[in-house]
Design a binder for these strands. Structure first.
Ligand code: FES
Ligand code: FES
Lengths: 141, 141
DNA sequence: ACATACCTGACTAAAATGGTCAAGTATAGT
DNA sequence: ACTATACTTGACCATTTTAGTCAGGTATGT
């Protein structure tokens, strides 16, 4: 039950981006240096964020990335979805009537894991980038 | 962000055990057959559950395992702890003052992950084996 | 004695993770 | 026009984790 670096980095990078994206786009190089994330890896992550229209890219010198929505409109769910960091607690396919053991009925723990999945997703749906920014500003005053 | 089979199996097996543990101990062979879990793998899991005194073992013919506490005293936390299914969302060492990037201060997302970890752990602390048994009985009436 | 069932540790194939590397393309500034 | 910057794409790879298997052993009830 752990978070992958991809999800973690995605959020880190977006917080960084949100903080420095005032007028000018922010280059991945800057984020890489500030947050200590490999540039090449960041590129992979941002290509996914772009595909889900969480960021916009601006090419060329002084180019970089910009948020395509306001921080309070970007929920953690959206970010995680974009980078394929999915919460998967059940083993079976949820839609299927079959259980994880291949039997014709759901296993004894299925409901539990499903509850857990909801519990976690609720957390991600509530939190937005804005919440993180606030938290961070508070901490540095 | 996913659950491993070890954690899942541990809970499945214990629910099974709790349901059939009336007078006689339950053999891993039975659990293996009923739940469709490899016997060899179950043995690894139960050796850990035993070490944390969640189950007791009875050797010899007609031997098997028995819960060493009442179902309502066994929380998911205890089970997960026993089989090393730990919830780890932060990257850094929590006790350390250092951040995940090796810097001298915690990263911008540290608080978030820490909150998440608590959120999840709360869930595990509340749920007991008894809850699962109830849920299962309801479903089959 | 013998079948049952717990016990232990070593081993391993496959998947996931966390990246790196190479070779581009687009654009702004000079 | 040239060049530096920075996004873009896709292939590649080492390490770690997962989910087991296998091969022995030991205790005990009948
Ligand atoms: S997890 Fe869905 S049936 Fe077991
Ligand atoms: S997760 Fe703790 S400092 Fe980044």
């Amino acid at each position: 039950m752990k978070l992958t670096s991809k999800g973690r980095y995605a959020v880190m990078a977006l917080v960084d981006l949100a903080r420095f994206d005032n007028i000018n786009p922010v280059s991945l190089r800057d984020i890489s240096l500030r947050q200590g994330i490999s540039l090449d890896y960041l590129e992979q992550i941002f290509s996914k964020l772009k595909k889900d229209q969480i960021v916009k890219s601006i090419r060329g010198t002084h180019g970089g990335y910009v948020l395509s929505k306001k921080p309070n409109e970007i929920k953690l769910t959206n970010i995680f979805h974009a980078v394929d960091e999915k919460v998967k607690t059940v083993q079976c396919k949820k839609e299927s009537k079959k259980g994880c053991n291949g039997k014709s009925t759901k296993c004894v723990t299925h409901n539990l894991w499903d509850e857990l999945e909801n519990h976690i997703n609720t957390f991600f749906e509530k939190k937005s980038l804005e919440d993180l920014l606030k938290n961070n500003i508070e901490r540095r005053t």
